[in-house]
Write a protein that binds this DNA or RNA. Structure first.
Lengths: 332, 332
DNA sequence: CCTCGTTTGGAATACGTATGCATTTCTATG
DNA sequence: CATAGAAATGCATACGTATTCCAAACGAGG
């Protein structure tokens, strides 16, 4: 059923190696035969076998992208530019959507079917990076990393972003401030919390335990956290959320609870997903360049594969910017 | 760098074929040597080469899923159950996210690196199915198909769903009704429109051209369509949207235009994405079982690959159900 | 003690492509 | 016209795994 280069060779009246060379524009094959081979390949609808090529060249021109939950709107916005940039660099993207990092490691990453890996949902306790290191598989972190030195990573200035928000909230007069941060085993969660806490501390404001929630970067985290925060002795007047998806969960919970935003509650997100600008939300948030974050990761990985990256590791950090919309207000 | 079955064989003191057999639990290898080989493989962290196996067996146990725009929240909700079901069936999912169907065909689907394909974003004018047929590559349509007979498809009763909505709107007293349908080259768009029109016609209600918009199943389609519909001589009192994402665009546009939903305008979607239930939307819509739709597609494809499917084609149709929430109201 | 059948393992090879090396076919130059 | 050199193509082989076929070893029965 499948058509091989041998079939093309037979039809064109040349040898198989000549077909291989002709189709790859090897200068060693004459223009005449090149044309002849091309026509034969066209006629037979020949497509080179990926497996054969891989086995022969020991290179797949394919890069794996690990994402645990595509349902989270954040990731599609990462995956799309990643795909385009990788394609531009001559690689194909293979999206691996596993529930957990670990299941992925053994079977799929190390079977020589990938030239490199982008880790988009790394946790600080994952054993995956070590496994990849051991097998010499090039990889980069995207958005999250493990916080170790010597890593290759394209990340955001999370700490700076957290600081931005704290400064704004303090400037608006808020004192009873709550935080719904990301999971403690993610650097995005930790760094945003750190920056936020440090800037609050600079202003002499504390963040008591009953005004702090940590959880996955999901809608439900925000949706369920708000009622809990409101039950505290002194309800917060402002909430900083680990990302936009969590903030949107909070906004919906606020609506369910009959709270008006921003009059009764200021809500601030992180990421500035397209969704954040929707009229129903008009979410005040922290922006960073998600496209550039992804493109940078792609380029860094390819540099690493080519051996052109700094052997000591490279950590590319993108700046953040405060985006005022309609979910924050001065405390009255 | 890479460890092969030959390395394992050397360490275990057996031949390479024995390694292959031992790790695949071939009864022809004794329990003792099997254990010996296993330990050697373990010690070396051996992972079989995908390319080598593919070349030898001519089977990849890998299925491609074609989706054009992951940014559209509909698709992640299809991809996740698809991934799980395929995994359950012993296949790996490879997600192909190309802008257009055509770019995909030549290079990626026919290079013998896939055992089958799921088409989730087919258009009626796509040449891709014909190409796959020509090369004997098994495939199924998911959600959308091309409307041809002899196809293998897992779809929704779109026409019935369209009828449901029309009946409800008529029953609520609406007469000036608008439709924002999907693209004309998709069966989902066409069938929902057809069912809607037929049921309206049954009630003696027409659908004039200035109350009809067609466009991609995207947020922007709804967001931009509403202002246009409102400019008509007689503004509609109800809008049926081709899917939830479009409806959400309409809801945001309504908010921007100062229209109250459902008092000023009834809005109805299709799909019942999790997002539709969010408090900010509470979208009245048409539900179908997206998980089952995906699982069914996976099972159908695997049956087709195994040669167990009906050679005349199979078209599995899931029922729809009306989901009343808060975006519809009786005309007063 | 010989023979036959069974069990277990190895040798050889196929899968499809790419590439180093040998070979042929030109062209140009003496 | 002979020959060196360049250009073009073919031959042989490697890549890693799975499988077909064959050989060895072993035990049982006569």
């Amino acid at each position: 059923m499948a058509i091989t280069s041998h079939d093309v060779a037979r039809l064109a009246g040349v040898s198989q190696p000549t077909v291989s060379r002709a189709l790859r524009d090897d200068p060693r094959v004459s223009v005449a035969t090149r044309e002849k081979v091309r026509r034969a390949a066209q006629a037979l609808n020949y497509v080179p076998s990926e497996a054969g090529r891989t086995l022969s060249t020991r290179s797949t021109r394919r890069i794996g992208v690990i994402v645990t939950d595509l349902t989270n709107p954040f990731y599609p916005h990462v995956v799309a530019p990643l795909h385009d940039e990788l394609q531009r660099l001559g690689y194909r993207m293979m999206l691996l959507t596993e529930r957990s990092d670990e299941a992925v490691a053994e079977e799929k990453l190390l079977d020589q079917s990938l030239d490199g890996v982008v880790l988009a949902t790394a946790t600080t306790d994952s054993r995956l990076p070590a496994q990849l290191d051991r097998r010499g598989m090039p990889y980069v972190f995207l958005n999250r990393d493990t916080g170790g030195s010597g890593d290759y990573a394209s990340v955001v200035d999370n700490e700076g972003g957290g600081r931005l928000v704290a400064d704004v909230l303090v400037g608006l007069g808020h004192r009873r401030i709550a935080g719904i941060f990301g999971a403690a085993n993610t650097t995005t969660g930790r760094e945003r919390e750190l920056g936020f806490r440090l800037a609050l501390a600079d202003a002499g404001i504390g963040l008591p335990a009953d005004r702090v929630v940590r959880g996955a970067f999901e809608y439900d985290t925000g949706y369920r956290a708000l009622p809990a925060l409101l039950e505290a002795a002194e309800a917060p007047t402002a909430v900083f959320c680990g990302n936009d998806v969590v903030a949107i969960g909070v906004l919906n919970a606020a609506l369910a609870a009959g709270l008006r935003v921003p009059d009764d509650l200021t809500v601030i997100g992180f990421d500035d997903l397209p969704m954040a600008a929707w009229e129903v939300f008009r979410l005040t948030t922290v922006r960073h360049d998600l496209r550039e974050l992804s493109r940078q990761a792609a380029r860094l990985l390819v540099r690493r594969i080519d051996g052109d990256a700094d052997p000591a590791g490279e950590r590319l950090v993108l700046p953040t910017e405060f985006v005022p919309r309609a979910t924050h207000a001065r405390l009255h």
